[in-house]
């Protein structure tokens, strides 16, 4: 499960129901920007919560601020901060998104959301040394998450699957396969999600995300609303037996959906994930 603030009590009372807890480390600090010193200020309240949780449940990191696809930014100080955090909680793995949100050498342009870059050789060449550096600095498996995208670029040099396959093969990094992203893209852009998954090298998948979404402006959106739909569980049924390195299935929802789910709803999603993925899963999140 991916932690959100609505789950503060849940993780205390139901830690036995969790094999691990994915957390967004960026929610436990304030980033004052690359020119500031010190750049990062921990939020004691959040740190306390994660410290207490880590005593009972292994943590994995799912960061949101690396912006690894930014053409003119490789944020080594941010990676150092992740490495510090990873060391504090001995996270089994770390993940971020295959996207950019910042641009400009001084990080002066912020998109207020994660945006995809075209799947071109230029991007691949940019990413390979960065991913190598991140893996080396973090000292644990590093995963990149496939994008959700609401528009497509014309004339991309590679398909999404070709890009992900080559990136993971050439860097040795793993894939965080977000099945709700796949489901959302397939609905919005009219392709067969199973065909897409069949073209991915699923041996690189270490973690899967499942989530729900909602309709907005004629699109299905990755809003993390409520439970994961049946179609996403069907995708997990396809992926799990074909992903030998899979170590975790993470249910994520937005805190505003807590009244829809409550404890029983969240436990139901975790049970459903286990019932589908338990057989092929490694017995531990550790390698």
């Amino acid at each position: 499960m991916l932690f959100n603030p609505a789950l503060a009590d849940f993780v205390h009372t139901h830690s036995a129901s969790l094999d691990y807890l994915a957390v967004i480390p960026d929610r436990s600090w304030v980033d004052h920007g690359p020119a500031a010193s010190p750049r990062f200020d921990d939020l004691p309240e959040s740190v306390r919560l994660f410290e207490q949780t880590a005593l009972r449940v292994p943590l994995v990191m799912h960061s949101i601020g690396m912006s690894i696809c930014s053409a003119d930014i490789f944020d080594a100080a941010y990676v150092d901060q992740l490495a510090r955090w990873r060391g504090l909680y001995q996270c089994a793995w770390a993940s971020d998104h295959l996207s950019f949100s910042r641009s400009g050498a001084g990080h002066e342009s912020n998109a207020a959301m994660a945006l995809p870059s075209p799947y071109d050789r230029e991007l691949l060449d940019l990413l390979i040394p960065r991913v190598d550096a991140v893996q080396q600095r973090l000292g644990c498996p590093f995963l990149l998450e496939n994008n959700v995208y609401y528009f497509t670029y014309p004339d991309q040099e590679m398909t999404e699957a070709e890009f992900l396959n080559e990136l993971t093969a050439r860097t040795g990094c793993s894939l965080l396969l977000d099945l709700h992203n796949v489901h959302t893209n397939a609905l919005n852009h009219g392709f067969d999600p199973i065909e897409f998954l069949g073209s991915l090298d699923l041996s690189r998948v270490l973690e899967v995300h499942v989530a729900g979404g909602s309709a907005m402006m004629g699109f299905h959106t990755d809003s993390h609303t409520g439970p994961a739909p049946d179609a996403v569980w069907d995708l997990l049924r396809f992926v799990a037996p074909r992903a030998p390195a899979l170590r975790g299935v993470t249910f994520e929802f937005h805190e505003s959906s807590w009244p829809l789910l409550r404890t029983a709803g969240v436990l139901g999603q975790l049970d459903r994930a286990r019932s589908i993925a338990a057989q092929p899963l490694h017995s531990s999140i550790w390698p």
Binding site: A112, L115, Y150, F151, T152, P154
Partner: peptide, 22 residues
């Protein structure tokens, strides 16, 4: 050409709305 195509795609309106929501 890509940016023009993106601007003409209805998904760009959604992106703008999502960014405003964020």
């Amino acid at each position: 050409a890509r940016l023009v195509a993106v601007a003409q795609h209805p998904g760009m309106d959604l992106n703008c709305t999502l960014a405003r929501g964020n």
